[in-house]
């Protein structure tokens, strides 16, 4: 782990507090897509970001929102670099992020554990509206690539599930 300077920690908090453009209840920090903030010179900052999905169109909005937030904070020269490896996983979403997703009406992803570990248990996906675990899959793909569409068989409400990746 590279140690951050106090300035980098401060800038990292500001960049990480930027809301996700498609799921504004989550910050980029909670989504787990922030990979690093480095001061590369006086007034010059490089932010590394990883996309959730390879084709996620939100990455461009995230980059410009981060640039904007850091400009506001007085950093004139901000560059946002996207990296692919190591690949983002839904396990990178923080506990607080999961709680906020459920509160927003989106069933959070189930934990997957480390790759190559023991076969994970298939936990039931809970309805974010009534809490029932009696839910069914309607479609593997929903309003965005990262979500699946499900329906609760208890309260009959359809809901999005942030699917495991």
């Amino acid at each position: 782990m590279v140690t951050m300077t106090a300035l980098e920690e401060e800038l990292s908090r500001i960049a990480g507090a930027v809301p996700d453009p498609e799921l504004p209840v989550l910050t980029l920090e909670e989504l787990g897509v922030m990979r690093g903030v480095h001061v590369t010179g006086p007034g010059r900052v490089e932010v590394t970001l990883t996309p959730t999905y390879t084709g996620c169109p939100a990455i461009e909005a995230m980059s410009s929102d981060i640039e904007h937030a850091l400009h506001e904070h007085g950093v004139p020269d901000v560059s946002v670099v996207t990296v692919l490896a190591p690949a983002w996983s839904t396990d990178d979403i923080s506990e607080e992020g999961r709680r906020k997703l459920a509160e927003f009406g989106i069933a959070p992803p189930r934990p997957q554990g480390p790759a190559g570990g023991p076969v994970p248990l298939t936990l039931a996906i809970r309805c974010p509206h009534c809490g029932s675990t009696d839910t069914e899959l309607l479609s593997r793909f929903s309003s965005t690539a990262c979500k699946a569409l499900r329906r609760c068989t208890a309260c009959r409400e359809p809901f999005d599930h942030f699917k495991e990746l």
Partner: peptide, 20 residues
């Protein structure tokens, strides 16, 4: 409708790979 959304999502993943 669900399939329209599914096929568009798959297309978007592929487009992301193509761009890279």
């Amino acid at each position: 409708l669900e399939e329209e959304v599914a096929l568009a999502n798959i297309a978007l993943d592929l487009l992301g790979q193509a761009r890279i």
